[in-house]
Amino acid sequence: MISIKGLNKVFKTRDKSITAVDHITLDIPDGEIFGVIGYSGAGKSTFVRLINRLEEPTDGTINIDNQEITSLTKKELRVARQEIGMIFQHFNLLWSRTVKDNIAFPLEIAGTPKDKRDKRVQELIDLVGLSGRENAYPSQLSGGQKQRVGIARALANNPKVLLCDEATSALDPETTNSILDLLVDINERLGLTIILITHEMHVIRKICNRVAVMENGNIVEQGDVLDVFLKPQQPVTKKFVEQVMGSQEDDSELSFDNYKNGELIRLHFVGESANQALISKISKQFEVEVNILQGKITQTKRGSYGTLTVQILGDPKVLNETIQYINEETSIEVEVIHHAN
């Protein structure tokens, strides 16, 4: 368990003080992939650097596996950091070292004997899919391969926690997905806790169990990823969800000018309900015409979530019966966007 209480970071300049992280309290269970999302300047990178004390907190405590990181001496912190791996947006590799020597570097610092070090390095090279590239230098690697080296290096000392600070932001979409798949595989194989910092909701959607949304140094919203997709509460969260699902303002472009009878509704599908043949059922059961106008479905780690905007035409009484049927007989949520004139 990672337990953070009242974490605060204030940067002081000659003229003013800037609060980058504002008294955050947060618990992250062992073995979870926990996402922290926010726009530039939200404080998320400062927050993650406070966890391993690359930045010193102004106030607050951080406990990892019942060890209070914030109270450790510098010597004790060097030992504790061996159990907190970190990967970075721009890789931070040693350009004069080969792949295997980059991965071996933290083991050298820890004083691991050469035979054990060589064995561990080969295990990590195989784990991250870099077999055959052991003797390559960073300049000879693609962006995705560089990040794989960074991940292997972060895992060298068998950490309990892996901190990822915008680890996919410098990568193209296909490479991003491959790195995210690797992180999921590592999480499942090794059972380590991963804290993922990002500004991309696609990244959160794909691999995170839970998410915290940061704005102006505060966590303004947090919860299970699927729940956040379903019912985002804060304006900033809604913007992030729109990155994946599109804006509901698009509905304003849908017109009823050509129809006298009908309802414009948005259907929200969650989990198994995304597989229900709803349109076919109501078309057969009720005397209505259903026009599909727009839709989107996406996957989270906990299940599917999708929306479908449809126009249902027919007698007003039958329309009411149709909507009542969807509400009462299915697990699909109905949102009426526009009534017929």
Rank of each mutant, 00 (worst) to 15 (best):
S3K: 15
I4D: 06
K5W: 01
L7H: 10
K9V: 00
K9M: 00
F11L: 04
T13D: 09
T25M: 02
D27S: 14
P29R: 02
G41L: 07
G43E: 07
K44V: 08
T46R: 05
R49A: 08
I51W: 02
I51N: 04
L54V: 05
E55K: 00
P57T: 07
P57Q: 06
D59L: 08
I62M: 05
I64C: 09
I64T: 04
E68A: 13
I69E: 01
S71A: 15
K74I: 10
V79C: 03
V79D: 10
R81C: 05
E83T: 11
G85V: 00
H90M: 08
F91C: 05
L93Y: 08
T98C: 06
K100Y: 12
D101C: 05
I103S: 12
A104V: 01
E108Y: 06
D115T: 13
K116Q: 15
R120T: 08
L124Q: 05
Y137R: 01
S139T: 04
Q140A: 15
L141E: 09
K146G: 09
G150D: 07
I151C: 03
L155D: 01
V161Y: 08
L163C: 05
C164V: 08
D165T: 10
E166T: 12
E166R: 11
P173G: 03
E174F: 07
S178H: 11
I179Y: 05
L180T: 02
L182V: 00
L183V: 00
V184E: 14
D185I: 02
I194F: 13
I195H: 03
I195M: 01
H199C: 12
V203K: 02
I204P: 07
R205V: 11
I207T: 01
I207Y: 00
C208H: 00
V211E: 10
V211F: 09
V211Y: 05
G217I: 00
E221N: 06
V225I: 05
D227M: 04
Q234R: 14
F240G: 04
V241N: 11
E242N: 12
E249F: 11
D250C: 01
D251W: 11
S252Y: 14
E253H: 14
L254G: 05
Y259K: 06
Y259I: 03
N261D: 15
G262L: 01
G262M: 01
L264F: 11
A277N: 13
L278N: 10
K281A: 12
V288A: 03
N291T: 14
K296R: 14
K301L: 14
Q311P: 00
I312N: 04
L313R: 11
L319I: 00
N320S: 12
Y325G: 04
N327C: 03
S331Y: 10
H338Q: 15
N341Y: 11
N341W: 13
